[in-house]
Amino acid sequence: MTALLLVRRVPTTRLELTRTTARQWDAALAGDTTVQWWELVDPADDDSAPAAALAALRPDPVTVRLAGVATAPGERDRAVQVVVALVDALRATSARTLEALPSTGLLGILRDAGFRPGPDGREVVEL
């Protein structure tokens, strides 16, 4: 049986753990202090358990930008899962679009999560 995972905005009390985990998976993304972190977690785990996947956003009331996704090596399915769950969570906000610049390795993840080509080389999903 697999655990039910949910996406949530990282609580302040978990930011240090989030940054430590992100550093192991994507050091450049972990060093960006301007992003808002979201995590894919097992709600039954305690707060000392690291996330299964992380997503970094640049929030905006209308167009949210996905700055990056971080997972353990070889966990591409978790990367897709966190982006899909993030899209669903953002549908409950005022945001209308989630967009991303497809970096190396991210394009396939974005496409699997429902993104399509948008303006200026960005990948876009309507919320």
Rank of each mutant, 00 (worst) to 15 (best):
D47E: 15
G31S: 14
V82K: 07
L98D: 05
D88Q: 14
V83G: 09
A30Y: 10
R111P: 00
P59K: 11
D26G: 12
A30G: 13
E39R: 09
R65G: 09
E99A: 04
A49C: 11
P61S: 10
G74S: 10
R19I: 14
R76P: 04
R76F: 00
L29I: 09
R9W: 05
A30T: 15
V64N: 02
A67C: 13
R58G: 11
P119L: 14
A3F: 07
L17T: 06
A22S: 07
L40Y: 10
R76M: 02
P73F: 11
T13Q: 14
L106K: 07
T18I: 13
R91K: 06
L110V: 05
D42K: 14
Q24M: 15
W25E: 04
A89Y: 00
A44N: 09
L98Q: 02
T93K: 15
Q36Y: 08
T12W: 14
L127P: 02
E16T: 15
E123H: 06
L110R: 04
D112C: 11
E16G: 11
D26K: 12
L6C: 12
V124L: 10
L40S: 12
F115K: 01
A53P: 03
A27W: 02
L90H: 02
V82R: 05
R23S: 12
T12L: 15
L54F: 01
V84D: 03
L107K: 08
A113N: 01
G121W: 07
A55Y: 04
A55D: 01
E39K: 09
T12E: 15
L29F: 07
T12V: 15
A56L: 01
L4W: 10
L127E: 00
E75S: 14
T21Y: 11
L90P: 03
L54W: 04
D46T: 12
T13D: 15
A22T: 15
P117V: 05
V62N: 06
D47W: 12
T97H: 01
A113I: 03
L86A: 00
L66Q: 02
T33W: 06
L90G: 04
G31Q: 15
V69T: 04
V10T: 15
L127A: 01
R96A: 03
T18P: 12
A79D: 08
L106T: 05
S94L: 02
P43A: 04
L107Q: 11
L106I: 12
W25Q: 10
P119S: 14
A44L: 13
W37I: 08
L107M: 09
R116S: 12
R116N: 12
V41K: 03
P11A: 12
A55I: 03
R78V: 05
A27G: 08
E75L: 06
